[in-house]
């Protein structure tokens, strides 16, 4: 009886191996689906068209960007929203994405910035947030394109090259001087920008 029972419960060896490999295949398939889906959605939410799907971005931020050299220039190379506002490295990217989800989505749903007046009211706070982030990471997002190793000081205007060399010697980063290059500066930017620059 005993012998029969065990025989009934455990399938033959070749059936067992088949079941295991099926399980493995399923796991791999689901893994690919989940991981791929995660990365795909990460990429989908990292495009300019996604940023511009909220009207807060369409009216003011994007209009202002279009006036600047980061959108329209001699060579036709341009920066899109995530090039500056989302880090390229995976871990930093995920951290930024989560903090944005916590901070920006409720603001969008509650209509914190849904008029130009409200936007202007919060502009200084928003700008300071970005200045501090850039300052803390050594203007990492600027350096994705602007590499100091590839920057030829002899090809710059004398004024620019002198100031760049000074800044490098003092250990400054891009954002210390280049504020308000892609969007307009908020009212009271001068005092606030000094504060952000002096922050260690």
């Amino acid at each position: 009886m005993k012998h029969e029972k065990t025989h009934q419960n455990t399938p033959p060896a070749h059936q067992q191996a088949g079941f295991l490999s099926m399980k493995l295949l399923m796991g791999v398939f689901i893994g690919i689906l989940l991981w791929g889906g995660f990365n795909w959605s990460l990429e989908m939410t990292n495009t300019e068209s996604y940023c511009l799907s909220c009207h807060e971005m369409q009216g003011i931020s994007f209009d202002e960007l279009q006036e600047t050299v980061h959108y329209s220039n001699r060579t036709g190379v341009r920066a899109s929203c995530p090039d500056c506002h989302v880090p390229k490295e995976w871990t930093h990217k995920v951290v930024q994405k989560i903090s944005a989800a916590i901070r920006e989505l409720p603001a969008h749903w509650s209509g914190k910035l849904d008029t130009p007046e409200k936007f202007e009211e919060h502009r200084l706070a928003m700008a300071t947030l970005e200045w501090n982030r850039m300052k803390a990471n050594g203007s990492r997002e600027c350096k994705n394109c602007h590499d100091s190793k590839s920057m030829d000081y002899t090809k710059q205007e004398p004024r620019s090259s002198a100031r760049h060399e000074e800044a490098e010697a003092e250990g400054k980063t891009c954002i210390d001087c280049h504020k308000g290059i892609a969007h307009h500066l908020p009212k009271g930017w001068k005092e606030a920008s000094k504060e952000a620059t002096d922050k260690k």
């Binding site: 600047t68 202007e120 308000g180 307009h184 500066l185 908020p186 009212k187 930017w189 001068k190």
Partner: peptide, 21 residues
């Protein structure tokens, strides 16, 4: 004596004063 293409003067900002203040 230089380009001012990137400069803006408005109620909120006057980027000339970044250097000329």
């Amino acid at each position: 004596p230089h380009s001012i293409d990137k400069d803006r003067i408005s109620l909120q900002e006057n980027t000339c004063l970044k250097c000329h203040s």
